[in-house]
């Protein structure tokens, strides 16, 4: 896709031996040609391995809502719905935390599990919980595949941090007293990023703003943003990496990918939030006014090279730990050759970004603290 230019976007669909497309096994990739092709293949693999085809009802355990709401997930925005309205247990997988196993409800990471037509799947798992409200908070964020478990965990943590940073930007801009975003001066971009920025502008046909949205977690996070018009919603791409240059590359290439992918990817409609004007503003994600008051900042210089995945994973976990956040991890599948699919939850980090796809969700405690003002967020 994208007419052969670089950065490129590729789409991948996996088929079974019978030639029939495998369930959920589609993905998109971005970046240089080989990088985009590999990315599309790995994303398709991720969606297949974490999707309904490999769901094992025997691998989940029923856990009462009150127990979940009293555990580490009490800091999740969805905990407000575990208030006893439905006492039926929820199907949970066991995740590994520093203190041992922690049950995490499947709905958090598996939208396919809460779809209206998935009643039989839930029945097989012995799950009679009412997911009418909780399905709004369901999202596959934090899932990743890597050539090793370490690489998969690094991708999953970076994605979780990226989504949290985007969520905090939304909260501050539209539920707080305003946000002065930091916009990178495009004249300060290194040559490869300057080229990617120019291509993103050509592909979107609009000004591309590269925002530094790094949060208190101090893992560089970039957002490539195109404001909405009366004819179409906003466009965006985001990236997180210990290397600011790699974070910016991922953001700009994701913007290219999502723009050329618009004809095959279905987007949620934020206008469905019209009954709740404050949340509709979040969903529309129109930063036009905020950008007029933006700070222009030079592109941040890369410090020491991030190093091997193992070292990066240790560093990212340390930065989370410094703010009081602890990842919970689950190995979803391991293929011959060590390719590994994982899912990561970091209790307390925000997933409010679901609102831009038309999901009716609220921020959790961290988002609410961010809305109160520009002061440093409290530690978890």
């Amino acid at each position: 896709m994208g007419e052969g230019r670089e950065p490129a976007a590729w789409h991948c669909r996996l088929r079974g031996p019978d030639g029939v497309p495998a369930p959920s096994a589609e993905g998109m990739g971005k970046g240089r040609r080989a990088e985009a092709r590999a990315g599309a293949l790995f994303e398709a693999l991720e969606h297949y391995l974490t999707g309904p085809a490999l769901f094992d009802p025997a691998a989940v355990e029923p856990v009462e809502p009150a127990r979940i709401a009293a555990g580490p997930l009490r800091a999740d925005a969805s905990a407000v719905l575990l208030d006893g309205r439905c006492a039926a247990p929820l199907a949970c997988h066991r995740y590994q935390g520093p203190g041992g196993a922690v049950p995490v409800p499947l709905f958090l990471s598996a939208p396919w599990y809460v779809e209206a037509d998935a009643a039989r799947l839930r029945e097989r798992a012995g799950d009679a919980h009412d997911y009418t409200g909780l399905m709004r908070y369901s999202c596959n964020s934090g899932s990743a595949v890597g050539v090793t478990a370490t690489e998969a965990l690094l991708h999953a943590l970076n994605e979780t941090i990226e989504r949290d940073a985007l969520s905090l930007l939304l909260v501050r801009a539209f539920l707080g007293t305003g946000e002065r975003p930091s916009v990178v001066d495009p004249r300060t971009l290194p040559p490869e990023l300057a080229r990617a920025h120019a291509v993103a502008g050509q592909v979107t046909g609009a000004p591309v703003h590269l925002l530094d949205i790094t949060s208190d977690l101090m893992v560089p996070t970039m957002l490539a943003y195109v404001a909405p018009t009366p004819d179409r919603p906003h466009r965006r791409g985001a990236g997180t990496s210990l290397s600011p240059a790699h974070a910016a590359w991922r953001a700009l290439t994701e913007l290219v990918q999502t723009t050329v992918g618009e004809r095959i990817q279905r987007r949620g409609d934020a206008e469905r939030l019209a009954r709740y004007p404050e949340l509709l503003a979040c969903g529309r994600f129109d930063l036009t006014e905020h950008l007029r008051a933006a700070r222009t900042v030079p592109f941040p210089e890369d410090g020491a090279r991030p190093g091997r995945p193992r070292d990066q994973l240790r560093e990212v976990a340390a930065r989370l730990g410094a703010r009081g956040y602890t990842p919970l991890t689950r190995t979803v599948a391991v293929l011959p050759g060590r390719i590994t699919a994982v899912h990561v939850v970091v209790p307390g980090l925000e997933r409010f970004m679901l609102v831009v796809e038309g999901n009716l969700v609220l921020p959790g405690p961290r988002g609410r603290a961010a809305a109160r003002g520009p002061a440093d967020l409290p530690r978890a």
């Binding site: 407000v80 309205r85 939030l273 949340l279 609220l362 921020p363 809305a371």
Partner: peptide
């Protein structure tokens, strides 16, 4: 989609806090 009563209360608190801070 509809917010529950508990969520509506939370949204009300968020917007009231914003209005107080803006004032």
């Amino acid at each position: 989609q509809e917010l529950t009563e508990a969520e509506r209360e939370r949204l009300r608190e968020i917007t009231e806090e914003r209005d107080e801070n803006a004032g």
